[in-house]
């Protein structure tokens, strides 16, 4: 019984996170300005990290957690670089 609840909870979590990624992608497409797109990209990174962790719980494989660590680090560096780029004020939209 409790295992059925657990597997349904995992399905629910995966659906939620995929929907969240889709919404972040929607915001990235809509903009309206560059900073909205950068923030949306950062949200997308965090959500994909969480989704990979749920995959990791589901399969019990360590490789998913390593992948989500790498995604987290890449996302951080990418967002910082983009924010620095916006900071210069030389971006022409």
């Amino acid at each position: 019984m409790s295992h059925t609840i657990l597997s349904w909870a995992m399905v629910f979590a995966q659906i939620c996170l995929v929907l969240a990624m889709a919404l972040a992608a929607l915001r990235m497409a809509r903009g309206p300005r560059a900073q909205d797109r950068v923030l949306a990209l950062d949200t997308l990174y965090v959500n994909s990290m969480l989704l990979l962790m749920v995959f990791g719980i589901r399969t019990g494989k360590v490789i998913y957690f390593e992948a989500s660590l790498v995604i987290g680090m890449l996302g951080f560096v990418a967002t910082v670089a983009l924010a620095k780029f916006l900071m210069r004020g030389e971006v022409i939209e």
């Binding site: 609840i5 909870a9 629910f12 979590a13 939620c16 990624m21 959500n47």
Partner: peptide, 15 residues
């Protein structure tokens, strides 16, 4: 199950 549902649900609400 509880922590998964709360975590993923709050992430969705935030987005």
């Amino acid at each position: 199950a509880f922590f998964l549902v709360v975590g993923a649900g709050l992430t969705l609400i935030g987005t």
